[in-house]
Design a protein around this nucleic acid. Sequence first.
DNA 1: CTTGACTGTGGAGTGTGGTCCACAGTTACA
DNA 2: TGTAACTGTGGACCACACTCCACAGTCAAG
Lengths: 149, 149
Amino acid sequence: MLISEFARVTGLTRDTVRFYARLGLLQPQTSGKGGRHPYSVFTDKDIQAEEVIRIAQSLGMSLKEIAAFNQERRKGHLTSERRVEIMSAQLVSLEAKATELEVMISYVRAKIHWLKGDQQGPEPDFENYARLNTRFNADDNDKPLPTLS
Amino acid sequence: MLISEFARVTGLTRDTVRFYARLGLLQPQTSGKGGRHPYSVFTDKDIQAEEVIRIAQSLGMSLKEIAAFNQERRKGHLTSERRVEIMSAQLVSLEAKATELEVMISYVRAKIHWLKGDQQGPEPDFENYARLNTRFNADDNDKPLPTLS
DNA sequence: CTTGACTGTGGAGTGTGGTCCACAGTTACA
DNA sequence: TGTAACTGTGGACCACACTCCACAGTCAAG
């Protein structure tokens, strides 16, 4: 498919598509058509790549990071050992994000629960949820964690 | 504490601290000291706020979104019904992020597993993991999902 | 009272991630 | 063959999130 159709199915603008292509995030084939400035041809692979871009970006990854990630998703001229290394590093960082996200979610849930109840007891405090990450640190804290129900 | 100490404990630069304060993300008290340009005084509350900023930002929220979130963490001059509404909206968006993150994580894990094995069978394909989100859509797909082990 | 380390203010500059536009070449269809 | 709809290129411009800088006022220790 050509750029306009690709833009339509992905919901990007043509400018953004070209922008991503310049950064190497999308790697359309060049068609025979278009003369001196050959037309770009996009395939399902590019649609998948765009999905990864959208999701990864919404999770706070920069386009540069996503480009690295995406290179791995494509034809790898790397040893599979190296690919495992790279994917494992990705996994660590994604899991770290997941942990932070769980902290945020449990905090927000506790706050909603507190607000919906009669607001007895202390207002949930982000610090206590942040500590879920760090409870095994050297400077252990003595405040009890609030229970959720 | 004054701005330099606050910057030191949070790991921000003084400029960034002032930038956040201008945006209302941090709301230091003003000290008696400093004359015409009173010194800002930061407390533990600001340290907590900064933690929320850092985490939320790493999860792809803009400073504007975080400001709205943070306003809610502070003294609420809003009804608790309104606060529940706002926190619930936050919760929905955080849970959506968590789902996307799980998709990414399961994809990366499958890829590592495939790479570590003898690479029999098809290379894991992001599309199949993305579909975990959308499997109940109208246009159901017929490809089976690959199993992880 | 000096001096060095701190403070705030205002403004310019940077990198990222786009967005807009004019222009010119190409294609497809009538 | 005309023409409308497409294509790429180059460059200006934008918002966001900082970052740097010069300058001037303030504080605290000696």
